[in-house]
Design a protein around this nucleic acid. Sequence first.
DNA 1: ATTCTTGCAAAGCCTTTGCAACTGC
DNA 2: GCAGTTGCAAAGGCTTTGCAAGAAT
Lengths: 162, 162
Amino acid sequence: MSLPRISVSQSPESKFQEFLRSRPKSQRYTDQQREMVRFIFERHNHFDAEQLIDDMKRAKCSISRATVYRTLKKLVEAGLLRELNVGPRTFYEHDYGYPQHEHLYCQQCQKMIEFQADEINKVIEQVCLEHNFQTQGHTFIIRGLCSDCNRARVNKRRLDLI
Amino acid sequence: MSLPRISVSQSPESKFQEFLRSRPKSQRYTDQQREMVRFIFERHNHFDAEQLIDDMKRAKCSISRATVYRTLKKLVEAGLLRELNVGPRTFYEHDYGYPQHEHLYCQQCQKMIEFQADEINKVIEQVCLEHNFQTQGHTFIIRGLCSDCNRARVNKRRLDLI
DNA sequence: ATTCTTGCAAAGCCTTTGCAACTGC
DNA sequence: GCAGTTGCAAAGGCTTTGCAAGAAT
């Protein structure tokens, strides 16, 4: 959507298959999982489990709530999706084939805006070194009002004053 | 605990009282709230609602689960506490009287380590400028293994090899 | 006296789980 | 055919809420 894709050698689907095969107890790639992976990687956006279930239902995909939750978990493990905790909600977004980035989150319209900032990685590296901490991931979210919502608010205030 | 307090002119208690009085519909400062504010600000740590309820119960404070949840919300609004979303869980920590900082979160032992990094603020400032975004707060959490857990893991691996 | 707060228990959300039927390998 | 997966519905956490009784101003 906003950032350029990274070119990757495998399709998300085959990468997931490979992941499943590589598990200690080899796992199976089912029709439901295939449908779900395709559905998710045909779009790029941020979603949570319930939204995905609704969207897939609307698109006439036949998959149960339980399977969606189970498969989301596997997709995160497989490195295809990234979990994002905004407030108490868990969102998901593409990880595989998409560059590292952070988020602006509009508390008004719930929009997520992606941005890249290399300085972040330097900070992480340095702090981890200092604290002898072995990083496995990070979350950086800036909350506030996006430009649209901000403009709308200013205009409203202006009207209120008349 | 790890960072130096900031000197503040008011006690958390009176700051909260002032906040309550200043509300559109003036709100009341009750015994339960007083007990809770004192309990929280006597220590410095990260906690979630359920932990707090347990701890207060153990300390023989009489306050109901519902009131704890209601009061936590007010304390955040009042600027006394800060919400922290780690995974799907909501933690709280002192905000009033405590300097800005970010967190390392050990996924093994759940420890929270605080650190300060001014560069973060520069990044925020610049990104917000670029996107015409009005910031209201941010979350920056680095997840991984703390030095203790890391050492334990390395030792375990060493033993496994013998 | 009025209006806000409390405590309780019930309801709500989101997520996980036990189990019998089913399906990929 | 075996082992892993599905769908269902029930159960689990955590949080919110309706309401009658109680407390602050």
